[in-house]
């Protein structure tokens, strides 16, 4: 998982317009990735265009254009963007430990690990300026992991409470109540009323 704040060190100084430059850099990487990933696809066969022809063409165009923008951004002055090395390191440590947990303990324990760490180091993440992305990402991840085994109501409750902590105006009691309200509402509205094929409560508890 990429944090939006992954910074190249010394972003300022040798690049005149780092905002355009580093935005385009990611797209250049995307183009290179696409070129690599479509290498094994056939191109033109007889008179028919192959599955790989058009993706490679556009990946090349994207890469060339990204280079162009980067080149112009290197020399034309523009606004700067704030990157922070400590934040990047924190995110890297956070993600890599989570990956290790995932490897040995599966998605659900990973989600719990992510949640616990996020709340334990809430102050730290806030100081580093990455509180919002961390909590929003963890909240969505937890929803995705919990919705099947625990049912919609609990997954929504978790999503609301964790994502609420992304804001500096976080109030614990208020978010607990709001999570409860939205959890019950979602179960009633989407499952009872719209008959979507989700379980409202943990499926283990459903009667046959």
């Amino acid at each position: 998982m990429n944090s939006p704040d992954t910074p190249p060190a010394n972003a300022r100084g040798w690049i005149a317009n780092p905002r355009d430059f580093f935005g385009a850099l990611v797209l250049l990487l995307l183009a290179l990735f696409v070129l690599w990933a479509t290498l094994d696809l056939p191109g033109q066969e007889g008179f028919q265009l192959g599955a790989g022809s058009i993706p490679r063409l556009f990946a090349l165009l994207l890469g060339a254009n990204a280079l162009l923008v980067m080149a112009s951004a290197a020399f034309t002055p523009g606004p700067s963007v704030r990157y922070s090395m400590p934040a990047a390191l924190a995110v890297a440590a956070y993600c890599s430990t989570a990956l290790a947990v995932y490897r040995f303990a599966g998605p659900q324990l990973t989600a719990i690990y992510l949640i616990v760490v996020a709340f334990l180091f809430l102050k730290k993440f806030d100081e580093l300026g990455i509180r919002a992305p961390v909590f929003i990402a963890v909240a969505i991840f937890a929803f995705g992991v919990f919705v099947k085994p625990l049912g919609l109501a609990i997954a929504v409750f978790t999503l609301v409470v964790i994502s609420a902590a992304a804001s500096r105006e976080f109030r614990l009691v208020e978010s607990l109540i709001w999570g409860l309200v939205l959890g019950i509402f979602s179960a009633l509205f989407f499952i009872l009323l719209l008959n979507l094929p989700f379980a409202a409560i943990p499926p283990v508890l459903l009667s046959q």
């Binding site: 179960a187 499952i191 009872l192 009323l193 409202a200 409560i201 508890l205 459903l206 009667s207 046959q208």
Partner: peptide, 16 residues
């Protein structure tokens, strides 16, 4: 909406 979905039960395992 209600009459068409009232049978849907929140607490019983559905056949899917």
């Amino acid at each position: 909406l209600a009459p068409f979905t009232a049978q849907a039960q929140l607490l019983q395992q559905p056949v899917r």
